[in-house]
Design a protein around this nucleic acid. Sequence first.
DNA 1: TCGTAACCGGAATATCTTATTCCGCTTACG
DNA 2: CGTAAGCGGAATAAGATATTCCGGTTACGA
Lengths: 213, 213
Amino acid sequence: MPAHEHPARPKRRDAALNSERLVQAAREVFARQGLSATLEDIAEQAGVGVGTVYRNFASKREIVETLYDEAIDSALADVRSALEIDDPWSAVVTFFEVTAASQARDRGLSETLLGHGGLGPRADTAEKLVATLTPLFDRAVTAGVLRAGVTTTDVLPLFAMLNAVYGMSDANPDLWRRYLALLLDGLRATDRPALPVPALDLASFTAAFSAGA
Amino acid sequence: MPAHEHPARPKRRDAALNSERLVQAAREVFARQGLSATLEDIAEQAGVGVGTVYRNFASKREIVETLYDEAIDSALADVRSALEIDDPWSAVVTFFEVTAASQARDRGLSETLLGHGGLGPRADTAEKLVATLTPLFDRAVTAGVLRAGVTTTDVLPLFAMLNAVYGMSDANPDLWRRYLALLLDGLRATDRPALPVPALDLASFTAAFSAGA
DNA sequence: TCGTAACCGGAATATCTTATTCCGCTTACG
DNA sequence: CGTAAGCGGAATAAGATATTCCGGTTACGA
């Protein structure tokens, strides 16, 4: 908020409370149901009427932007903090596990990052993502722990795949870990033949990343 | 068509032609765009008006049923024909490749099988699917080529994952093969630790299978 | 070549869904 | 207490898309 804000009269106490409740409710509902959740779902979760939603946000889009604006930065931060792990392979594994765990926990987040919601990631995000991932992957390649041919552009398809499993079974919320383990085994250096079909090139990656579904 | 059909007067030639065109058009459009394709898309592809669609089918649902009624049986047939391959591991690989290839080629098909369209698979289909897959997997286990703990219920998540990649890049229509290879490597017997998190049990599998998205 | 029943195209209509607006009623608080 | 800030939620606006309808065409048998 602008620094020159009129301290004016503060919000009425009940209004301020509703405001907080709404943000919290939006987080929970989007996390559980994804970005296609209804404003009425959110209002109900917050225990208020839809009118109150609009007294706090100009539109649904604004709510989504408010909540997930830093989503991508946060994902990039996960990459960087994985780089602090000494063992190159552990770092890769940790990156995937931490990132996937956030997405499994928050369907709105994964939709935002995969562009399945309305507003796809901004155009330059793809490049930034690749740039950030490069050190992590390079180090693993140098150490000889990453399978030949695996590149940074593989992460989009890999997360898209995991995304398909997140909510599959209410009884097994951690089911995705099983398939992530499978994928990581395939990603690890082996004496097996190289993968068929090359990874996406940068152009295709960017296109796919900005496309969504 | 009933055997006691009045030979009556045959359809007008143009009408018969349109009929064929429509079925063909529906196949193409559903394959390309998935079951959410519009009846108008189909009519346009066939070069007719929407009215004509309704002179041939009572509803959109009927079109989908007509086209994908045998989809599941066909998938089951793929399993059985994979069983005719002598090498147990090749059989598993072939099953995945053949089945995934059909689905990559036809988005309507994969949506039907994964229940992403309107009409999910019928209730008893899950059991039938598991029953059919069992010999294929059992043989691979006996031969010691399948990783410990991998079961028939893994196929649903695995195909769901592949489904997320099928249309990802127009420039690389075969990209899915790259990730299928990765998954198959993980599925193959190794001396690596067992997978974390068990596979779905039958009840969860059935539930997930009938759920869709 | 005609007459006409069978067919057509595609605009109009019926439904749904969900975002967004509005307004009469409440309530916090000076 | 008075009243402006807030509120709930019905009403409205819009966008999709399945389905219906009907005036205009066309195949085809006589």
